[in-house]
Write a protein that binds this DNA or RNA. Structure first.
Lengths: 208, 208
DNA sequence: ATTCCCCTGTGATTGTTTTCACAGTGTAAT
DNA sequence: ATTACACTGTGAAAACAATCACAGGGGAAT
């Protein structure tokens, strides 16, 4: 299994989703140029990305949707399940829960954490909310490695540190703050303010 | 003004924010390696990025925070203000509002839109919510170019089309769907599910 | 059977982004 | 005055990513 770029990984994840959709629509075969239209990725790029999975399509019938899907999953997924925890049950945390209910077999939200006593022990979308100080215990026993940081900016760093101390190894950070954490922790920044500013920059360009 | 990469734009926006913070802390000078620590960007990269703004620092004192900030703003900002509208006032839309209240002089949320009669005409964080069918009128009169798409996946494409028809030229898309829109419209995808899956991929790697 | 066609997989190429490395600069210390 | 120093700005190199372009393959049409 050789090194592969972050961009390729994102695209593979995207292909996987699209293939899953196709499967539920009973489409069993697909060509790279069709997948291209569904993903806004060039067909050459798609073929290149798929190389790493080892799966080969047929020049005549294209790719078998089910087999390709399995091949991508084998490449991307870790053996066994991975747990996800949400830190912060404000609007953002709840909206993530909402979007997440799409069936994601190997990835499951197992717990939420908040300090607000009104939220603790409530169950939302089938997920129970715990006190933040219970995090270490629950994360260890439930095999949770992914944490979604959805708290106000003011406390983002403290909560992130707590997440790491509790055993989280990958963080999805929505707060507009750079987190200082040990280097072996993977952090994906999804800074909401920055995203708006970026769109503002590119949307004005078109006006001229 | 020459071509510059998307990544550079994102970083410039980040530098701008950090510099703004420094200014409120009354720090007036900064070296590239200090900014590097605050942003997780190498100092060489920072100097390279700053080239496009035309601003030059002093080899002795580093950069003047205020002057550099102004220089970046001159480069990034359009003359005049830009309006932002939020489509969908569920949890996600409200959380964007919450994060946004940081002072953003040239970028302002001017309206929200929703079809739910319970939400229409309510005012949240100082932003009024309108009926979706009022969008075209309001967007035209209020100089709104940026739209944040925060609706359920099911209706994302329809609302996006409506946004474009109403005059929006840049869309920040949080739904896990690729939008089909005219090519001159800028779309920034911030697919929430994909982000979680990506973190899951990279967080497992560290465990081995 | 032969030709044609459209697809895949991939080596080669092109294009882009990041890093390296160093000349140039101005202050401070001796 | 001279030297030493720590930084910037940037050409050049390296690393990385996307695209091109074509050999190879097999079904369909003639």
């Amino acid at each position: 299994m050789k090194k592969i770029s972050e961009k390729s990984i994102e695209r593979l994840i995207l292909y996987r989703r699209i293939l899953g959709n196709l499967l539920t629509e009973n489409q069993s075969k697909i060509f790279s140029h069709q997948l291209s239209r569904l993903t806004d990725v060039t067909s050459a790029q798609i073929r290149r990305d798929l190389m790493v999975t080892g799966y080969s399509g047929s020049p005549v019938h294209g790719y078998d949707v089910e087999a390709l899907l399995k091949s991508i999953c084998d490449y991307i997924d870790t053996p066994g399940d991975q747990g996800v925890a949400i830190f912060g049950l404000g609007h953002l945390g709840r909206s993530v829960m909402g979007y997440f209910n799409t069936r994601q077999p190997r990835l499951k939200i197992k717990a939420a954490f908040d300090t607000d006593p009104d939220k603790v022990n409530r169950v939302l979308h089938g997920i129970r909310c715990y006190r933040t100080d219970q995090a270490k215990d629950i994360i260890e026993t439930q095999n949770i490695s992914v944490g979604i940081l959805a708290v106000p900016q003011r406390i983002a760093q403290d909560v992130a540190t707590l997440m790491v101390n509790s055993g989280i190894t990958g963080i999805l950070n929505y707060a507009p703050t750079r987190l200082e954490l040990p280097p072996q922790i993977y952090v994906e920044n999804r800074d909401m303010i920055l995203a708006v500013e970026k769109v503002a920059y590119y949307s004005k360009k078109n006006n001229t």
